[in-house]
């Protein structure tokens, strides 16, 4: 402050300090407001959905098929579709995602090729989901299944979409295993695969699990690629095999939102509540696993 007073008369510097103090306070409020607006946006979204949809959420809604009459509409078909898609996606994703992560972390030489593969994976994580839909449409629907828009095509597309997330999360889980564990096993003459199988994996599996569940929850909420793959709007049956036609929960919500009638909007809100509850449950399980089995490296 002595610098300020040396520059000019005392009163001027005092006023300057006062301005600075007030500017600090005003911007403190501004920054606080920024984060509170974000939180308020979240609150408004949840309240909006709950107010619109809660009244329509009942047992009939959970067990009916979609209908032209809003009040008789239900989410049985999209719920079953979502369970199918997520189940198949998990079956495809888990071996490939964990396999890639193990390869990159434990087997691959740290050379330029490996770096390129890792760069490629992080780039894939940034590709818009709608592009995966186009990939799935051309490769799985048109080429592999001859134009059949079936569950497997949808699940394979979702697999490619969440694979980068699963790989990155699994790599993190493997990295969290202290290298002293590996060194101890190597010192006893274990092969690389034995080290992975008996030392790294048991430690890394909980971290991988929580990463995979989070990635699958992304797949549950994703609609754009499924919309391109399935394209079907009114599905009124429960899929019985991997080559059935299907719809999923977010897609059904989208269909209802797009209807002009007010009641369909409310039905959509009821669907959103179910979707959010499913996501909440999956996230809770992932966090619970992470907290319960977290590897503490010192």
């Amino acid at each position: 402050m002595s610098i300020n007073s040396a520059q000019g008369p005392r009163g001027k510097s005092k006023r300057f300090d006062l301005i600075r103090t007030w500017r600090d306070r005003i911007f403190f409020i501004g920054f606080l407001l920024a984060i509170l607006i974000g939180v308020a946006g979240l609150a408004a979204l949840l309240i909006d959905v709950l107010v619109d949809g809660l009244g329509f959420l009942n047992w009939k809604f959970l067990t009916n098929y979609a209908s032209r009459k809003p009040l008789e509409s239900g989410i049985l078909a999209p719920m079953a579709g979502t369970v199918w898609v997520v189940g198949l996606t998990a079956i495809f994703t888990v071996p490939v995602g964990i396999g890639t992560a193990i390869y990159l972390e434990e087997f691959a030489k740290k050379n330029r090729l490996t770096r390129l593969v890792e760069l490629n994976i992080s780039n894939l994580a940034g590709v818009p989901s709608v592009i995966y839909g186009l990939l799935g449409l051309a490769v799985f629907v048109q080429f592999l299944f001859n134009g059949s828009r079936n569950l497997t095509a949808g699940a394979l597309t979702m697999t490619l979409l969440i694979l980068p997330i699963v790989i990155i999360a699994s790599q993190e889980a493997i990295k969290a295993v202290p290298s002293s564990y590996r060194d101890a096993a190597y010192a006893m003459g274990a092969t690389r695969w034995q080290v992975v199988k008996t030392v790294v994996m048991p430690q890394a599996v909980p971290g991988m699990m929580s990463g995979i569940i989070l990635a699958l929850s992304r797949a549950v909420g994703e609609s754009a690629p499924i919309l391109i793959i399935s394209s079907l709007v009114w599905v009124t049956f429960v899929p019985t095999s991997p080559d059935s036609k299907f719809t999923v929960l977010p897609l059904q919500i989208f269909t209802w939102v797009s209807q002009p009638q007010e009641d369909f909007r409310s039905i959509a809100a009821a669907g959103i509540i179910v979707l959010l509850l499913i996501l909440l449950g999956m996230n809770a399980v992932a966090i619970w696993i992470r907290n319960k089995y977290q590897v503490r490296s010192e």
């Binding site: 974000g38 946006g41 979240l42 408004a44 979204l45 909006d48 959905v49 929850s217 549950v220 909420g221 994703e222 609609s223 754009a224 977010p250 919500i253 989208f254 939102v257 909007r265 959509a268 809100a269 959103i272 979707l275 959010l276 996501l279 996230n283």
Partner: peptide
């Protein structure tokens, strides 16, 4: 906010 499905944002 980052975990909410985009279809829900559309509705909002």
């Amino acid at each position: 906010l980052a975990g909410i499905p985009t279809v829900v944002y559309g509705y909002f």
